[in-house]
């Protein structure tokens, strides 16, 4: 992939979230989340397990409904859309799942075709094939085209999952823990894939992670989620310069292996 400098447009928030709250029964998960993601920007969201990172992007993609607050994606309030409008919005959002969520009864090719043929029914067989091959090539896995998901490694599954969302040429990418469970070398490859996707497809993205290396290499800005709200937002250096015990702990745990006491 060729690299082009990407402009971040600070006047255009593709995702705008204000005072978002979400509980499940008695469990409050998000408690007043505010965040803006600008056009062309990768926002890394850090937070320990169970803080509601996945819930946040599920709300952004309309899989879960917020209890209250504003959730605007590409100018539309997600929870106010009807089924048809939501479908149209989802065409512009790519969602890479924490566990890849590949369709395990289908081959890699069928996985990639699935969203394409249903959303663009007028494509010819040739156009479908070349679109599939193009995205597979972009994630470097053209050779797996006829394999079943069960035959792939964790890193390969992540890439195929990303390819499956890229095939619809989304404007926003939501990555849920793209490097979780992968070895450091594969993680580095996934990190550079995320950056390449940003450059080549012109996406804005939220990258959810608890891996600081991933946050540092992919995030133009980072934000730390703790106790249902964002504790700090800014560049990597800005956030970790903040004098807060909990942020320091986070940093130490990742880079020095010190015991963490939240």
């Amino acid at each position: 992939m060729e690299h082009k400098p990407v402009q971040i447009n600070r006047n255009n928030a593709v995702i705008h979230i204000q005072n978002l709250r979400k509980s499940f029964g008695a469990l409050t998960v998000l408690n007043g989340v505010d965040i803006d993601v600008f056009q062309g920007e990768n926002m890394a969201v850090l937070g320990r397990s169970g803080t509601g990172k996945s819930v946040l992007i599920k709300i952004i993609s309309g899989l879960l409904k917020p209890d209250s607050g504003i959730v605007q994606v590409l100018g539309e309030e997600v929870d106010k859309l009807n089924a048809e409008e939501l479908r149209a919005l989802r065409l512009r959002i790519g969602f890479s799942f924490q566990n890849s969520a590949l369709y395990d009864s289908m081959t890699v090719r069928e996985n990639l075709e699935f969203p394409l043929v249903r959303n663009k029914p007028n494509l010819t067989r040739q156009e479908i094939d070349s679109a599939v091959e193009e995205v597979l090539d972009n994630v470097g896995l053209l050779q797996t085209i006829n394999q079943m998901p069960a035959e792939l490694s964790g890193g390969q599954r992540k890439r195929i999952g990303i390819a499956r969302t890229l095939i619809l040429k989304p404007e926003i990418m939501l990555y849920d823990e793209p490097t979780a469970g992968l070895d450091p070398i594969t993680s580095v490859e996934i990190n550079s894939l995320i950056n390449e996707v940003r450059e080549q497809y012109n996406t804005s993205a939220i990258v959810i992670t608890h891996d600081l290396t991933c946050a540092k290499t992919t995030g133009n800005r980072i934000a730390i989620l703790l106790d249902g709200r964002f504790l700090a937002q800014g560049t990597f250096e800005e956030v970790f310069a903040v004098d807060d015990e909990r942020i320091k702990n986070f940093y130490n745990y990742n880079f020095t292996g010190d015991k963490v006491d939240y």
Binding site: G62, L63, R90, I93, F97, A101, D104, P115, N119, R164
Partner: peptide, 21 residues
């Protein structure tokens, strides 16, 4: 079993967010 495992491994959610039904 088939739909259940698709549900718990988020394959059904994945179809939903890729704008398919």
């Amino acid at each position: 079993a088939e739909l259940g495992s698709m549900k718990v491994t988020e394959q059904i959610d994945a179809m939903e967010v890729s704008a398919t039904n």
